[in-house]
Design a protein around this nucleic acid. Structure first.
Length: 274
DNA sequence: CACGAGACCTGTTCGC
DNA sequence: TGCGAACAGGTCTCGT
């Protein structure tokens, strides 16, 4: 589910107290867990032991990871497809999918709701081991049009799976990739090294503007997972199969690319370079 | 190196 | 109405 804009929104909400509690400054008195596989590293016992008593100093984001720097090490959470973070009073009855709960000294709990159990939690002395495997941030200064063009040229991969490869670029998911490629008029199956300099420039521009708009709109809320955002109201192609392309009226098509549902306009995004 | 298939999970929606 | 199939915002591993 959550891609960069949704994770960024959650991080800001937790950091700024928009869910009723500011997480920075909270002291973790204990952690409970009813599904150990959710703890990716270290093992659950060590995780609980090491994190108990620590203070959360901040809430940040890197790629699609939520990052909680603590007194000693760093807590990281990846929400994957169906994860969410809830802040509630200790007394609040538990939902059915909250497998890891952080109990704060303030009487509040931070619960990791994770319906499909894909999400994972880490406690690391040094988060570099996660960061090192991630590509640049789309809104960061290392991600330039020059860099993108050069890197596209070095590979011969379909553009959509490449943009979603977190080691290439950190944060793009299925929604934002489909919307970005539509805005840039690039077919999702174009091979990366066939993009012209001008197309790479447009792609760079549209990656940034799509992500920025997603953050401004506080992400997308679709299906039964409501996150408060309204980016879904601006979708041009994502999950709009058969509906007219807002630009040219041609029905939006759905194909599979890299096993992922892919939506595009066959007229605005031709397979061959115009 | 690039790609496809399968795995990991539960819930909702769709088609007959 | 009921029931199985398809599908869902992500990532990992394995085989070709």
């Amino acid at each position: 589910m959550p891609e960069l804009p949704e994770v960024e929104t959650i991080a800001r909400n937790l950091r700024e107290g928009r869910l009723g509690l500011q997480v920075p400054g909270q002291v973790i008195v204990d952690i409970s867990n009813d599904w150990e596989r959710q703890i990716a590293a270290p093992d659950w016992k060590t995780f609980r032991c090491k994190l108990r008593g620590q203070t959360i100093l901040d809430v940040q984001r890197r790629g699609k990871y939520l990052v909680f720097p603590c007194t000693k090490g760093t807590l990281l959470i990846h929400l994957r497809m169906s994860g969410d973070i809830l802040l509630v009073d200790h007394q609040e009855p538990a939902g059915g999918h909250e497998h890891t709960v952080f109990h704060f000294a303030s009487g509040w709990s931070m619960r990791f709701s994770n319906t499909r159990k894909f999400g994972r939690v880490w406690y690391l002395e040094d988060p570099a081991e996660i960061y090192d495997r991630l590509g640049p941030e789309p809104l960061g200064s290392e991600f330039t049009a020059d860099w993108l063009y050069t890197e596209l040229t070095k590979r011969r991969r379909k553009i959509k799976p490449l943009l979603m490869d977190q080691t290439f670029l950190a944060g793009m998911g299925n929604i934002y990739t489909d919307e970005t490629l539509h805005r840039a008029h690039i077919h999702p199956e174009r091979t990366s090294d066939t993009l012209s300099r001008q197309e790479a420039e447009s792609l760079w521009q549209n990656i940034r503007s799509t992500i920025e708009e997603g953050i401004l709109r506080q992400g997308a809320s679709i299906d039964w997972i409501y996150r408060g955002g309204d980016f879904q109201n601006t979708f041009q192609v994502y999950r709009r199969t058969g509906l007219p392309c807002p630009t040219c009226g041609t029905p939006v098509e759905r194909i599979l690319v890299g096993q992922r549902s892919t939506h595009f306009c066959p007229k605005c995004q031709p397979e061959t370079q115009p």
